[in-house]
Design a protein around this nucleic acid. Sequence first.
DNA 1: GGGACATTGTACCGATCGGTACAGAGAGTC
DNA 2: GACTCTCTGTACCGATCGGTACAATGTCCC
Lengths: 186, 186
Amino acid sequence: MLKKGVERKEVLRALGEVFRAHGYEGASLTLITEATGLGKGSLYHLFPGGKEQMATEVLADIDGWFELNIYAPLREASDPARGVAAMIAGVDQYFHSGDRVCLVGMVALGAARDTFATSVDDYFARWQVALASLLRRSGLSRSQAQRRAEDALLTIQGALVLARARNDAGIFRRALSDLTARLLAP
Amino acid sequence: MLKKGVERKEVLRALGEVFRAHGYEGASLTLITEATGLGKGSLYHLFPGGKEQMATEVLADIDGWFELNIYAPLREASDPARGVAAMIAGVDQYFHSGDRVCLVGMVALGAARDTFATSVDDYFARWQVALASLLRRSGLSRSQAQRRAEDALLTIQGALVLARARNDAGIFRRALSDLTARLLAP
DNA sequence: GGGACATTGTACCGATCGGTACAGAGAGTC
DNA sequence: GACTCTCTGTACCGATCGGTACAATGTCCC
C-alpha cells in the first residue's frame, strides 16, 4: 500500500523524468508504467484525471521545489551576493549542471503549452518577481531589477537548450558563471 | 503536377510549421496532410523515408535559410556593427519577433534529438563560428569572440522559450536589443 | 475470521498512429 | 489515340494510443 504522501512524491519524480525525456505528448502510458513501475490500474487510481492530471501535479511539484529552494531564499536573502550565489547553486544542482532539461520550458515550446499555460507562466513570473526583489535590495531601480531578472531566466533557459543541442554541459556552466557576474554588476 | 523545386519548398515550409506547432512526435500524418493539403499517397511519394525524411529535409531547409541570410552575411560583413545589426534584424524577422519558435531548439529538447543530433549541432556550431569570426574582426580575442557568440545564441534561444512561456513577445524584443549592445561592447 | 475499503493486474475499448499497396487519374511524347 | 511515367486518393495494415471495467488481491479494523 502507498504511504500516501511519501510514495506519491516518488511517483511524481519518475513521471517528471518521463515527461522530461519524451515531452508531454511523447510520454506514452507504456513509458509511464515502465518508469513508475505502476500498472494502469494503479496509475488511474492515483491520477483519475489521466495524463493531464499527472502533468499538472508534476508541474506543481516542480513549482513546490523551486518555491522552497529558490524563490523563498531569494526573497529572504539579506546579502544580494549571497542570494544570487545561492540561486545559481540551486539551479546548477537542479539541472544537473546542464544535463537535465527544464520541463517547464519544454512544455512552453510544445503544443501542450495552452493546456498548462498558467502553470508555465506562474513558474517564471514568480521566479522573476523573487529575483527582482533581491536585486532591488542591491540598489537597482525597479525596472532595472525586473529587466535583469528577466535576463537571468532567459539565460538559464537558453543555456539549457544550447547545452543539450550541442551536447556540451560546459555551455551551461559558463552561462551560469557569467550570469552571476552580470546580476551583481553595479 | 509538382514544379519540382518550387512546390517542394512550399511543402517543406508547411511541414516546418506543423513540426514547430506540434513537435516531431506530435506532428501526426493527419496534421501533416491537413497542413500541406497533400494526401498520404503524395506525401510518401515525395518523402519515401516518411516522417524522418520530412524532418530531415525541413531542418536542411532551415539550415539553408540561415546560411544564406545569416551565416554568409556574418562572414562577409566588413563593419562589425553593421554585421551584428543585420544578424539581429534577420533573427527578428525569422522568428516573427518572438511569435515563432525555433524548431531546431525544440528538437534539441525532445526525444528526437538523437535522431537529428548532427543537424542540430551543425546549425548552432556554424552560427557560432560565423558570428565569432565577425567578432574577431571587431578586435576581440579568439576565446572572447567564441564566448560572446555562444552567449548570443543562448540568449536568442532563451528569449524564444521565455517569450512563449510568458506569452510576451516584448521579452524577445528586449533580449535582442540588449544583445546587440552586449555583442558590440568593447 | 469477516467485512470494508484501498490497491492492482489484466483484458478490453474505440481511435489513431506511421506506413504500405495499388488502382487509376493526369500530363507529356510520339 | 496509345504509351509512358509521375503523381494521388483510398483502402487497408498491425501496432500503439489514452482510457475504462472489473475481478482479484491486499490491508486494515473489529
